[in-house]
């Protein structure tokens, strides 16, 4: 029988990237500044995580000018939402596996 942790996705299974997907799943979309401040990341760090998630087609990045200033909006793709759901399911499965062992 395979251990549930084998279902964890390497791209998603990382604190900041999970946080990004959780925010986008809840809010629909968020801008770069909100994600940076909320997850307490540096600009460069967040940019790298976003690049990884975008490369895996889990998020969509839109850059536009608002009030003559550039603004970056990030939203989750259906694939990104599904990846977050399966990650959470895998984590819950790890927990319930241990709990059921303890009970037996």
């Amino acid at each position: 029988m395979t251990h549930p942790s084998s279902a964890l996705d390497d791209v998603v299974h990382q604190r900041a990237r999970l946080g990004i997907l959780a925010i986008l799943d809840e809010a629909g979309r968020a801008d770069f500044a909100y994600l940076r401040d909320s997850l307490e990341l540096t600009d460069g760090n967040l940019a790298r995580h976003l690049e990884t998630l975008e490369h895996a087609e889990l998020i969509r990045i839109t850059k536009r000018f608002e009030d003559r200033r550039p603004r970056t909006w990030v939203s989750a793709t259906p694939k990104g939402r599904a990846a977050l759901r399966s990650e959470i399911a895998a984590l819950k499965s790890i927990i319930s596996r241990v709990e059921s062992r303890r009970a037996s």
Partner: peptide, 10 residues
């Protein structure tokens, strides 16, 4: 616009 969060469509 001010908070940088929210899903306009939903």
């Amino acid at each position: 616009r001010s908070s940088g969060i929210g899903d306009r469509a939903t």
